[in-house]
Design a protein around this nucleic acid. Structure first.
Lengths: 235, 235
DNA sequence: CTGCCTCTTTGCGCTGGCGCAACGACGCCG
DNA sequence: CGGCGTCGTTGCGCCAGCGCAAAGAGGCAG
């Protein structure tokens, strides 16, 4: 809860304004695997994750599932739903038991009127989201699978990386299937690619668990710096 | 110019407020093929198209180009740049001579403070953008090329469709290459697909010109209603 | 009318990545 | 500690879509 105050979402709010905003929220716990809201439902509330993580997904007509992003503590989900307010564009499932703060659309609108800085913060937030999705869109359209997987891992490290002795652990359950849905590939291709990287010593992986042993090598694949990864060449 | 007043961007503004906002803008003409701004440049202004059209593109490391969207009269470009304000995430090239209104970041910020409803309008705008990009992202990840092309055409009809006797003309120069960059395909595949549809009487096409003869057949491909298109079955 | 330039078509070969099946490994629960 | 359910791996075949080359087809300028 205290972490929320320092979230960019609430930056610039006076202490008492922040308190007012937070008390207007309704708290809720979503169990592992349960959903906070579902794609297509009428969008009537705005969520911020207090603790835990949400997985935002969309499904295609044939049932193919795609992961848009993960939402960590202090981040907002369904930011858009609250404005063009028709239906949720994605489903939000909890990864592990997750605490969320919920505001109804009406409450949110009122708060936006009362604290204009909130609107600016939200604008910035949506801008960043848009920027990121556009970039991923370009990647999906122009880059090969291996590179997309590498990028996905790099992003995950940024969001949920934890230093361990073997390297950097991605601190959440991460199956091949999940990576596949993040990158627009199949779980088979992901598995093969990770096996290869493991053979090259770039990563170590286990059941729903990935540790990046040589992050710069992964970045090299993601960015296509002179492709190969070498053990101790500098630069 | 008069059209701008009714743009959703400026909805809810009093007449004199609207006038104030518009006079704060700097007007500019961008010639066909010239750019209003380029990807990677420091983002210092916010644009609204008054007349003509902008094409927003991104390029990948290998030079592969991707078209994010077209921006028509009354629509905003670089909405995000004005907030997280680092660099433009895309290049905006004019399609035909195009008039744009430009506000500097500072001006925009000032206007947002003075007319809070503007901020809400922008939030709604960004929300819709985000929703659309996310949907296209899912399509790119899960659907075949033919369907993506069909969807692109359907969207273009909505944005620039004009009724002509043969059907609905997409009223802008539209090459195979352009369609390819919109759908993450190659110009060859697009050409082949369109040829096939032309043989089936769904479209008629020429040099940089596409007319949709049987729109519902195209929609059937885009949504995957029982696939085939038939000439006069209802429903 | 002629030439040129750009856009389009089509054939052909190739391959990245999918799709499935079978098997193997891990972890949990009783 | 044995069974089972989930997740991961790997071999094999296949095909959608790419990549290129070569040949049309408009359109525009002079």
């Amino acid at each position: 809860m205290e972490a929320l105050g320092s979230s960019p979402l609430f930056a610039g709010l006076a202490r008492e304004a922040l308190a007012a905003v937070l008390t207007a929220a309704h708290e809720r716990t979503v169990e592992d695997g349960e959903t906070a809201f579902r794609e297509g439902e009428p969008a009537d509330s705005f969520c911020v994750v207090a603790a835990g993580r949400l997985k935002l997904t969309q499904v295609g007509p044939e049932g193919h599932e795609v992961i848009l992003r993960f939402v960590g503590p202090g981040e907002a989900a369904a930011a858009l739903a609250a404005f063009d307010g028709t239906t949720y564009p994605a489903t939000a499932a909890a990864v592990g038991a997750t605490q969320v703060l919920v505001w109804s659309r009406a409450e949110l609108q009122a708060l936006l009127g009362r604290h204009p800085v909130l609107a600016l913060n939200l604008l910035r937030l949506l801008s960043e989201r848009l920027r990121e999705v556009q970039e991923r869109f370009r990647e999906l359209a122009t880059e090969r699978v291996a590179r997309r997987i590498a990028r996905a891992l790099v992003r995950l490290v940024r969001q949920a990386g934890r230093k361990v002795e073997e390297g950097v652990l991605i601190d959440m359950p991460l199956s091949r299937q999940t990576l596949a849905e993040m990158t627009g590939a199949t779980l088979f291709t992901v598995s093969r690619t990770l096996s290869e990287w493991e053979a090259q010593g770039i990563i170590r992986s286990g059941r729903e668990r990935v540790v990046i042993a040589r992050p710069h090598a992964l970045v090299a694949i993601a960015e296509d710096l002179p492709p190969a990864g070498e053990v101790k060449s500098s630069k």
